[in-house]
Amino acid sequence: MSKRWNYLTIEVKPNLMGIVNAEQIQQELTKQGQLGWELVNAISLVSAPPFTTSVLIFKKEA
């Protein structure tokens, strides 16, 4: 039988200068890891330069 997965996406928004703080990302990764989520992808989206939003995609076995 194949495994079933739950997925979670979290958007890490930029500060007022348009920059995503690496510390924010680290905190979110640690928090979700402690809850049993595994990071499977991270995407940077540029909405309007220089504003970049990071999207973290996690999975956890159902």
Rank of each mutant, 00 (worst) to 15 (best):
M1I: 09
M1F: 12
M1C: 11
S2M: 06
S2A: 13
S2Q: 08
K3S: 13
K3Q: 08
K3R: 11
R4S: 09
R4V: 10
R4H: 04
R4P: 03
R4E: 09
N6S: 11
N6C: 02
N6W: 05
N6L: 09
N6K: 11
Y7W: 14
Y7H: 12
Y7G: 01
Y7S: 05
L8A: 05
L8N: 04
T9Q: 06
T9C: 03
T9I: 06
I10N: 02
I10P: 00
I10E: 00
E11K: 14
E11P: 03
V12E: 05
V12Y: 03
V12A: 08
V12S: 02
V12W: 03
V12D: 02
P14L: 15
N15P: 00
L16H: 10
L16N: 14
L16K: 15
M17A: 12
G18E: 00
G18V: 09
G18S: 08
G18A: 09
V20D: 01
N21A: 04
A22T: 09
A22H: 07
A22D: 08
E23G: 12
E23M: 10
E23C: 02
E23H: 11
Q24P: 00
Q24R: 13
Q26L: 08
Q26Y: 03
Q26E: 13
Q27L: 13
E28D: 12
E28V: 15
E28R: 09
L29C: 08
L29R: 07
L29S: 11
T30I: 11
T30V: 10
T30N: 14
K31W: 06
K31S: 10
Q32F: 04
Q32I: 02
G33Q: 07
G33R: 08
Q34A: 14
L35G: 04
L35W: 00
L35H: 05
G36L: 04
G36W: 03
G36M: 05
G36Y: 05
W37Q: 07
W37A: 05
W37K: 06
W37S: 03
E38I: 07
L39M: 12
L39Y: 07
V40C: 11
V40Y: 07
V40W: 04
V40T: 13
V40A: 03
N41W: 02
N41S: 14
N41I: 08
A42Q: 15
I43F: 09
I43S: 06
S44P: 11
S44F: 08
S44T: 10
S44M: 11
L45Y: 15
L45C: 03
L45M: 12
V46F: 04
V46A: 09
S47L: 07
S47E: 07
S47G: 04
A48Q: 09
A48F: 09
A48C: 14
A48V: 11
P49S: 14
P49L: 12
P49F: 14
T52M: 07
T52G: 01
T52R: 12
T53K: 01
T53C: 01
S54W: 02
S54P: 00
V55R: 01
V55N: 00
V55K: 01
V55I: 15
L56S: 03
I57D: 02
I57F: 05
I57Y: 01
I57G: 00
F58T: 02
F58E: 02
F58W: 01
K59I: 07
K60F: 05
K60N: 07
K60H: 06
E61F: 03
E61Q: 13
E61S: 06
A62I: 06
A62Q: 15
